[in-house]
Design a protein around this nucleic acid. Structure first.
Length: 492
RNA sequence: CUGGAUGUGGCGCAGUUGGUAGCGCACCUGGUUAGGGACCAGGAGGUCGAAGGUUCAAGUCCUUUCAUCCAGACCA
């Protein structure tokens, strides 16, 4: 029987799209570059949201909401920032439709032209800072720690489901502080939250580091990032946290009266992760049978497939399933009993594998007689026959093992594809094979650009949590002195 | 925007030198089945992306146009 998922060796892009579609995560929408996130995919996003949201609140952050539309003039205040976004924004110019005088459909009412165009937010710095201006008067008002869960629109020339869509869901945190040190610490704290989330929840090993000036967010003084490696060896930026300095405060004139009565500009951060994390999840863990979900994120952690010939057998098996389900539910495990009687077991096995459900239990007459169940794990595809007695404890333990194993597997893959490189000729061929190359860099934008032009590789980050990178050396391209190694890779 | 490719039932595709559309999956009905994507029989579903042209006749040839995909450019 031919598998529906295309082997990754043939065409990684096709393989990825197949998993998105077959696992029932998302489909293409009628709007160019946008996608419909289906219930199963959205359930995963909701889990990500709830876990992240809890972590944010533990750091004192509160949720708020700001408008979707931003007056065009707001963008002209921060020159550097607008340069990074101006080219790819959707613009609202009119506010009314009318019946087409030809009688065919509707047209934009030319009378309804807006005085000032509205930009559909590509990110909310400008509107949030125009609001913060009114919130911040005194040192007592600081810090302000707000996050918003919302959608943003960026009219990208080329899109890919989850990784780069014209509209996407994300959270964006925006904080204001009295001192540079406090703001910087906040930016570091939040990238730490992201790294912990990636590792512990998504089972995704990430490298935390600073972006080079070239790759920094428009308007930021420092950008911290978590960089992950996908199974084709390409890098994916999974989340960022920016130290914005006083750029936005100055542009939007956000000043507070300090304890000594002097007027001071506030210091800012912003940080965000998006539905791109879904893309990371898919590309990091999936295999040729489909999605592989870490148990912590799986909307369904255990699926039960009954096997029967007669109505009596079916009733007996489902009865047993209900008992196991109750025991598992008491332990906080989410369980789905697949009692559809129009489909055969083999079909169900394959279907739940594509969807990445971590554990599958099969139970039939044979097992009932022996007092056992068949427990299959998605990460290794191994099957075990387990005694019905205490199966709930076995599965609870197994879910933890699967979570750990998925992380270990991804970590082993990543580490096997990180290597040092000190020779430019070698670099040019090695980088095309995928993976991360740790190389010396002289710290100049010119060198970085030259390397990018020659190989398409970019500096993914200057690591902060890896001691191997702190050593003197010579730049791989220019030969000039370098204070440490940075991560080069070809990125999504 | 540049280069390449593709548009034919819900999905994936075939369709020769022009002759009035077919296959697989999915769907509906009935039956047999059920421990890894079942089988048999019957059935429904398409103005072939759109517009124009050539022709007795166009899915097929010509022109225009639109859309999608891939590779660039672009991109926290």
């Amino acid at each position: 029987m031919a598998k529906e998922i295309t082997p990754r060796s043939e065409n990684y892009s096709q393989w990825y799209n197949d998993i998105v579609v077959k696992a029932d995560l998302a489909e293409q929408s009628a709007v160019r570059g946008c996608m419909v996130i289906k219930p199963y995919g959205y359930a995963i996003w909701e889990k990500m949201q709830s876990i992240l949201d809890k972590a944010f609140k533990e750091t004192g952050v509160q949720n708020a909401y700001f408008p979707l539309f931003i007056p065009k003039s707001f963008f002209s205040r921060e020159a550097e920032h607008v340069a990074g976004f101006a080219k790819e924004c959707a613009v609202v110019t009119h506010h009314r439709l009318m019946n087409n005088p030809d009688g065919k459909g509707v047209v934009v009412d030319p009378e309804a032209k807006l005085e000032e165009e509205l930009i559909v937010r590509p990110t909310s710095e400008t509107i949030i800072w125009s609001v913060y201006k009114n919130w911040i008067k005194s040192w007592r008002d600081l810090p302000i720690l707000c996050n918003q869960w919302c959608n943003v629109v960026r009219w990208e020339m080329r899109t890919r489901p989850f990784l780069r869509t014209a509209e996407f869901l994300w959270q964006e945190g925006h904080t204001a502080h009295a001192s540079a040190e406090e703001a910087q610490a906040k930016a570091e704290q939040m990238v730490g939250v992201y790294a912990k989330f990636a590792r512990e929840t998504m089972a995704l090993p990430v490298i935390v580091g600073h972006k080079s000036p070239n790759e920094r967010f428009a308007g930021a003084l420092d950008t911290l990032t978590i960089e992950a490696m996908m199974q084709d060896g390409k890098a994916l930026q999974a989340g960022t946290s920016h130290f914005l300095g006083q750029n936005f405060a100055k542009s939007f004139e956000v000043q507070y009266a300090d304890k000594d009565g002097s007027l001071q500009y506030v210091w800012a951060t912003s940080w965000g992760v998006s539905t791109r994390l879904m893309g990371a999840l898919i590309m990091a863990h999936s295999d040729d049978n489909g999605l592989v979900l870490p148990p912590v994120l799986a909307p369904i952690q255990v699926v039960m497939v009954p096997i029967y010939k007669t109505d009596e057998e079916r009733a007996a098996v489902l009865d047993k399933f209900e008992a196991i389900k109750a025991a598992l539910a008491a332990k906080g495990v989410s369980v789905k009993i697949d009692d559809r009687d129009t489909l055969r077991p083999g079909f169900k096995f394959a279907e739940w594998e594509v969807k990445g459900v971590p554990v599958r239990i099969a139970l039939g007459a044979r097992d009932l007689a022996a007092g056992t169940v068949e427990v299959a794990r998605r990460d290794t595809l191994e099957k075990a026959t387990v005694s019905l007695e205490g199966v709930d404890a076995y599965i609870e333990d197994l879910l933890g093992k699967i979570q750990q194993n998925i992380y270990d597997k991804a970590l082993a893959f990543r580490d096997a594809n990180i290597r040092k490189c000190d020779d430019w000729e070698e670099f040019k061929t090695e980088i095309q094979k995928g993976g991360f190359l740790l190389c010396h860099w002289d710290g100049t934008a010119e060198t970085e650009q030259a390397i990018k032009d020659a190989t398409k590789a970019t500096i993914r980050c200057i690591p902060v949590d890896s001691c191997v990178c702190e050593e003197e050396g010579k730049d791989i391209f220019s030969g000039k002195p370098s204070k440490g190694r940075v991560v080069f890779a070809i990125a999504y």
